[in-house]
Simulated scan of single mutants.
Amino acid sequence: MSFDDEPGHVGGDPGRGDDRFSTLGGTRQTRTRMPETTGDVYGGARRPQRTSRSLVMVVGVVVLLVAAIAFANRGGDGSATTPDTAKPGAAEPTAATGTKPVGGKQGGIASGFAHDEQGAQSAAVNYLVALGSDGMYSTSRRHEIVNTVYAPDIAAARQGDLDKVYSGKDFLTRIGLNADGTAPSGQTFISRFNPVGAKADKFDGNAASVSVWYSALFGLAGEGSKNPVSESWFTNTFQLKWTGGDWKITDFTQKDGPAPVGRDQAAAPAKDMTDAVEQFGGFTYAR
Rank of each mutant, 00 (worst) to 15 (best):
D4G: 09
E6G: 11
G8F: 05
P14F: 12
R20A: 13
R20N: 12
F21M: 14
L24Y: 13
P35T: 08
T38R: 14
T38M: 08
G43F: 01
A45I: 03
R47M: 14
P48T: 10
P48F: 11
T51Y: 10
M57C: 04
L64T: 09
V66P: 04
T82K: 05
A96G: 13
V102N: 12
G104V: 00
Q106A: 13
G112A: 01
H115F: 04
A120M: 13
A123L: 07
A124H: 01
A124G: 04
N126W: 02
A130W: 00
Y137G: 01
R141S: 05
N147T: 06
T148H: 05
I154F: 07
S167D: 15
D170K: 12
T173P: 01
R174P: 00
L177C: 06
N178S: 02
A179K: 07
G181F: 02
P184A: 01
P184D: 04
F189T: 00
N194P: 06
P195K: 01
G197Q: 06
F203L: 03
D204I: 05
G205S: 03
S211P: 10
Y214Q: 12
Y214A: 09
L217W: 11
L217H: 08
F218S: 08
G244N: 15
K255D: 10
D256H: 14
G257S: 14
P260D: 04
R263M: 14
A267H: 07
T274A: 15
G282N: 02
A286F: 06
